[in-house]
Amino acid sequence: MAKVERPLSPHLQIYKPQLTSVMSIIHRGTGVFLSLGALLLCFWLLAVAAGPTIYAEMFKHLTAWYGILLLILFVFSLFYHLCNGIRHLFWDAGLGLELKATYQSGYLVVMASLLMTFITCWLGMCSVGGAA
């Protein structure tokens, strides 16, 4: 059989992004990112176990501007992955697989995850800001 270097599908260079495909890759991206968040959570727990001095050191980094930014990204990723994961569970049950329904649930996931991120970050700023 002749070896021909045929392009692989989907042809990403000429592929028009749709809500559904973009949301799919974001689900995967947030999943990978959240795995790094799991490692950060592990470090946080180890810092708690290590005592107040090391905990204070880590807390200083987590409340610096880059720490806050990272935490906001983690919160958004978690809510997005959570909401879209529930969308996937409905698909597994055979529900909402029609084209129109996938777009409706897609918009719902985007709005819900943004809203939950906003509320959580706002409450988080209040609790940290109030204690500081």
Binding site: G51, P52, Y55, F59, L62, L82, I86, T120, S127, G130
Partner: peptide, 22 residues
């Protein structure tokens, strides 16, 4: 699904401020 929501909620409640409260 419930566990991650519980975790975020707990962090908001304790505020993760000082070592003693955590």
């Amino acid at each position: 699904t419930p566990l991650s929501l519980w975790f975020i909620y707990s962090q908001l409640i304790i505020g993760s401020v000082d070592h003693a409260s955590v």
